[in-house]
């Protein structure tokens, strides 16, 4: 590419543009990193000195020239600081979506569609079985369960960056004002969100609390902890998980989840198609997920589409 830089490189690069802070996009060890200041803060919190030798913050909408390419970051609505990368070169515009969603999220700026010639879209949920219900309804399910099982704790599996803070914010929006308890692995990034101005209310480390005192309370933990030994510290927990993958019952069951909450930070099938129509790109490249179904559907609607296979990404992207 003219400009000699990489978007979300899987191996350390000389110059990297990073869409957001999830570990499968933002990796340590790049020489120079261009990203939103929130993403840079997240990378520093995660990687410390390894976040990058030179960190260059770029505000949303502000163009910067790299070689002959004009680069601009536009909100992607995925997590705090997440951005699409808009590239312009000799009159053509390419948009790299990064990960994105269209549903409302009180913890980050909403996705902005940018008309373009080539749209490189993620497709984590690129099958028509993935249609996320309103997140508020899923939060209501959790609160109903807390009312029905007041003697049990509710343990919600959430990814530490984005989902955790969004679930807390959604609970607060629903009027839940009790303390929310956090697994130790969630604390650093949640505090960073608060420092960056996201209001999350009364949060407490779970480690300080006696087992019996967690009856009737909501506890958040990383997905890996919810059904493992760590969870034995909780009184008869109702195991919940907040993820788009919870849409499929077998997935939820495999993970021992008793209350699946379908809350995703990725576009669902309808949002993917609506976004492609909005940016109205004649050419769509599909990556990160179930490319074949989306390529098939986009081709049916008269656009050119192809799968862009990337190495280094897991089948089950972070959600």
């Amino acid at each position: 590419m003219p400009g000699d830089f990489f978007v979300d490189p899987v191996r350390p690069a000389g110059r990297a543009v990073i869409t957001h802070g999830h570990a499968d996009h933002a990796r340590p060890g790049n020489a120079s990193v261009l990203a939103t200041d929130q993403t840079l803060a997240i990378m520093q919190a995660r990687y410390g000195d390894q976040a990058g030798a030179s960190l260059q913050p770029l505000a949303y909408g502000e163009p910067v020239e790299i070689g002959e390419v004009s680069v601009r970051l536009v909100p992607a609505g995925h997590v705090l600081g997440s951005a699409q990368v808009v590239l312009e070169y000799r009159g053509s515009r390419v948009v790299v979506s990064g990960d994105y969603k269209r549903g409302a999220d009180p913890t980050c700026a909403p996705f902005e569609p940018v008309p373009c010639d080539v749209f490189i879209t993620e497709a984590t949920f690129g099958l028509p079985v993935f249609r996320h219900p309103p997140a508020g309804d899923e939060i209501a399910k959790l609160l109903n369960s807390v009312a029905l099982f007041p003697e049990r704790s509710h343990l919600v599996g959430v990814y530490s960056l984005g989902k955790c803070q969004r679930v807390i914010a959604l609970l607060r929006q629903a009027g839940y004002d009790r303390p929310i308890y956090l697994h130790g692995a969630l604390i650093a990034l949640t505090e960073l969100y608060q420092r960056l101005g996201v209001q999350l209310g009364d949060l407490r480390p779970m480690a300080d609390v006696a087992k019996g005192d967690l009856r009737g309370e909501i506890v958040l933990a990383p997905p890996s902890a919810i059904a493992d030994r760590w969870s034995r510290r909780l009184p008869d927990p109702v195991v919940c998980a907040a993820s788009g993958w919870m849409r499929v019952r077998q997935r939820a069951r495999q993970r021992g989840v008793e209350l699946p909450m379908i809350i995703s930070d990725h576009a669902d099938w309808d949002e993917l198609l609506a976004t492609i129509d909005e940016v109205d790109a004649p050419e769509v490249w599909v990556t990160h997920g179930r490319e074949e179904a989306l390529v098939h559907q986009v081709t049916q609607s008269g656009r050119r589409a192809q799968a862009l296979s990337l190495v280094g990404f897991e089948d089950d992207a972070v959600d």
Partner: peptide
Amino acid sequence: RVDPALFGWSYDYVGD
């Protein structure tokens, strides 16, 4: 109601 190819991929994925 649904494109048969999309239905096929989906059924393979979901299994029920």
